[in-house]
Design a binder for these strands. Sequence first.
DNA 1: TTAACTGCAAACCCTTTGCACGGTG
DNA 2: CACCGTGCAAAGGGTTTGCAGTTAA
Lengths: 127, 127
Amino acid sequence: MERSTRQREAIRRVFDIGQPPLTAQEILSLARGEVPNLGIATVYRAIKALLADGTLVDVELPGEVTRYELANKEHHHYFRCRKCGRVYDINNCRVDFDAMTPHGFRLESHDLVLYGRCASCIGAGRG
Amino acid sequence: MERSTRQREAIRRVFDIGQPPLTAQEILSLARGEVPNLGIATVYRAIKALLADGTLVDVELPGEVTRYELANKEHHHYFRCRKCGRVYDINNCRVDFDAMTPHGFRLESHDLVLYGRCASCIGAGRG
DNA sequence: TTAACTGCAAACCCTTTGCACGGTG
DNA sequence: CACCGTGCAAAGGGTTTGCAGTTAA
């Protein structure tokens, strides 16, 4: 991120309003509010730069396209609603994953995704 | 899987020798031992059929292409070695994920991947 | 001014699909 | 001998890259 451009600032600002993890397409749609003819290639290039400088981290949910979120969050996991597809952050990770690690293996990190129905989809009625 | 063909049998047999989760390309390479000019499309079609009839399940590790393994295993998770890239099954899942689920949400399932170094990569020396 | 940035379009990788030929039951 | 299954190649979806025009510094 050397130069400051309208495009990059718009993309960066997308994350300033407490967004859940976003796909490149979602970032594009949101940033087009400020820069209407923004191109997807520019989004990907900006994402790459923001990943490299540590501003963003990628969120890879099994079987889905990569999402991105601000890196300055606590260690956390995700809950994906099977109905609406939204992804929520789960902040309490109080699990002893070391107990699951085979003897002789060294555990360094873990990824966890919970699946089910979110409160709004349950509240909205059957489904 | 209606008809039994050389291709389908070769693909099915790939999994009979205790394979770790395999990518479509790996399945192709292995099955070509029996059917040299096997096409990748046939592999994908066979995988789809084997997923549909419950023989295989897909294994989606964050940021990687889909892998496939036999479905007749217990509920389990994966340990991916950051050095050699191999994926191991983790069979003891005794975690109370419900405790991590937000109020009002309904937990249906979960995916867990542990990352680190496997025993052979630790034993092999520095790294 | 001028080198980095942008948007478009083409290229890529993985997966799926259309089609005519081949093989199973 | 009907069809399903196969291989090839083209099409799709997401991401990356080449290029000429644009713009920040």
